[in-house]
Each structure stands twice: as C-alpha cells, then as structure tokens.
Amino acid sequence: MSNLTKELNSDCSETKGRDAVELVLRPREKDLGGFSVRRLLPTAQRKTVGPWIFFDHMGPADFPAGEGINVRPHPHVNLATVTYLFEGEILHRDSLGSLQPIRPGDINLMVAGRGIVHSEREQPEVNSVPHRLHGLQLWLALPEADEEVEPAFHHYPSADIPAVEVGGVPVRVMMGTAYGATSPVRVFASTLYVEAHLQPGQKLLLPDADERAIYVAQGALKAQDIDIPEHAMAILSNVSGVIVEAAEESRIAIIGGEHMGKRFIDWNFVSSRKERIEQAKRDWRERRFPVVAGDEVEFIPLPE
C-alpha cells in the first residue's frame, strides 16, 4: 500500500464534540487522476488513533478497459499495512516473493518491519474490461520493540474473518477482539478494527478501546446528538456505553487500540526514530532495498 499523494497530513475540517465524541473530521477529496482518495489520518488535528497512523478511503472509482490501479514498487519500514476492498481487485507483489490478488472481504496484512518493497497492479483479465475499485488503505505503527522485525506477508480470505450479529446488525471483526469474537489477523499491540452495516434506525453499542474512532464509508450516523456524516471520522473518548444510530443505511469502520506514542512519518516510512527514516530514504535512493519478484524494473523514486 502506497502513500499516493506527496503530502501526508490531510487538510480535514473539524467539528468539536463533547463527552464521548471528541472531534469529527471531514476530509477533502484528492483527485489522483481517475479516482479520488479521502485521507482521515494523519491530520493536523489528530495524528493517530491507537496504533492506526494512516487511513485512506479510495474510490469508488470506475475505470474503462485499459486503465486502473498501477502502483510501481515502493518501500516501507517500521509499519504494517492493511488493505481491505469493498469492490474490485488489486494484485499484490512484494520483495518476499508474495503474489496475491486482493478481493472484497479479504484482509492483506503486510508487515514491513526492517524493510519491504511491494507493488499494486491489476491482473490482465481485470484491466482488460471496465471495472470498479473501492476500499480502505490503512497503516499500523508497530510497537518500538517490533519496528525492526523480519518483514512478512499474511493473506486472510474473507471466509476466515469472524462475522457476528449484534442486535440485528451484521458485524465483521477484522482485527482484534469485539462482540465475543476474535479475528485471526496478526496484531502486534492491542488493536481494534470492526466493520458493520446498519439499516436506517438501527443502533450499535461500540466496543471499548483506549483510543477509538468511527468512520462512515457510506450513509450517516448520530452519536450523542452529534451528526457523523458520510466520509467523516468521529474521534471518540474511551468512555463505555457509546451507542451510534444509523440515520440511513450505513457502512462503517471502527478502529482503535492502545496508544503507540510519538511516531514520525515521511512518504511511505513510519518510525519512532527520525534517524531511521533518514536511513530508509538513503537506502531507497541508493537502491539498497530488495526488489519485487516479478516486478523488478520499475520503481517510484524518492520524492525530493
């Protein structure tokens, strides 16, 4: 997963909340040529939510035949990426030799650790016909003790992700533990990632976490008389018993977990140490990272 825009901090607008709802962030869409991205994290108002340090909502984008996602090889260090699609398909390749199509409902977890390189392309059978892409791109900051772990890649098919019903609301526990279910997706710290699909008037009691946020990918919610419109993220306090209600059919993501402490972020690099990021930048500039198997020729230059 790449940071496709040069600037990192989103220029979100904000609404001050109260009690359980501390802040409501509303992103501005960024046109990346053929599709749009909404960045919710990091922002000037809020850098992280638990271990989550990067949150992009891409699309939905409709591509004609011959066009689509074509992200050349690029590096990451000291973080883990999470890719989740609502619609479409992305072909993941990395410097470990992984080759994996990502499809709706699957979770791809790529642990960069001390360093990994990957690309995001499309298979010819996808690219050769009109197609749509819609999904979330997220990054996790690794705990300091795990920042330099061996890189790894994990793919979890949709069928392996726990699905439960909470008061009539279908919920998927993507990462961590919630509503009596535990996801098999690997975590390095206390991590929460839940998806829910509410019909108008339905309510959902949110799981507890040290830090939490709720993102409305589709629809509109209300929490404590605070409106959370479509494509907004509400930053929540850690009080228990927070209930949201759908004003219309809504698809939401709940993220959170334990606080990771200060992290530095520059392009596709995240670390607790500025000098580690500078080293990664030098290594990429001087071509010292490993290459992506099957995608060895092209690469994204370090932005200067």
Score class of each variant (00 low, 15 high):
residue 173 V to Y: 00
residue 120 E to W: 04
residue 219 G to E: 01
residue 105 G to H: 03
residue 272 S to K: 10
residue 219 G to D: 01
residue 190 S to Q: 15
residue 149 V to D: 06
residue 8 L to Q: 13
residue 2 S to R: 10
residue 19 D to S: 13
residue 15 T to M: 12
residue 199 Q to E: 15
residue 145 A to T: 09
residue 294 G to R: 05
residue 112 A to G: 09
residue 227 D to T: 13
residue 298 E to H: 09
residue 97 G to E: 03
residue 71 V to M: 10
residue 256 G to T: 09
residue 56 D to C: 04
residue 266 D to G: 06
residue 131 H to Q: 04
residue 4 L to V: 13
residue 235 I to E: 03
residue 16 K to G: 14
residue 58 M to S: 08
residue 85 L to S: 01
residue 103 R to A: 00
residue 33 G to K: 02
residue 108 N to E: 05
residue 25 L to H: 04
residue 43 T to S: 14
residue 188 F to K: 10
residue 125 E to M: 08
residue 78 N to K: 11
residue 148 E to D: 09
residue 170 P to Q: 04
residue 123 Q to K: 13
residue 18 R to K: 14
residue 45 Q to W: 04
residue 33 G to A: 02
residue 22 E to Y: 09
residue 207 P to M: 12
residue 207 P to R: 12
residue 84 Y to S: 09
residue 293 A to K: 12
residue 229 P to A: 11
residue 73 P to K: 08
residue 33 G to Q: 02
residue 234 A to G: 11
residue 165 E to V: 03
residue 107 I to W: 05
residue 90 I to F: 05
residue 15 T to S: 15
residue 58 M to P: 01
residue 75 P to R: 03
residue 84 Y to M: 12
residue 149 V to P: 05
residue 277 I to F: 07
residue 165 E to G: 00
residue 79 L to W: 10
residue 119 S to K: 09
residue 85 L to M: 09
residue 74 H to C: 08
residue 160 D to E: 07
residue 60 P to R: 03
residue 122 E to R: 03
residue 252 I to K: 00
residue 157 P to F: 00
residue 286 E to D: 12
residue 169 V to D: 03
residue 81 T to H: 07
residue 137 Q to C: 12
residue 183 S to V: 13
residue 212 R to A: 14
residue 153 F to K: 01
residue 87 E to A: 11
residue 161 I to G: 01
residue 229 P to V: 02
residue 284 W to L: 01
residue 2 S to Q: 08
residue 86 F to P: 01
residue 4 L to D: 14
residue 78 N to I: 07
residue 219 G to Y: 00
residue 53 I to Y: 00
residue 111 V to C: 03
residue 126 V to D: 10
residue 116 I to A: 07
residue 26 R to Q: 11
residue 81 T to M: 08
residue 299 F to C: 11
residue 59 G to S: 06
residue 129 V to F: 13
residue 126 V to W: 10
residue 35 F to R: 07
residue 84 Y to H: 15
residue 233 M to N: 05
residue 19 D to I: 12
residue 78 N to W: 07
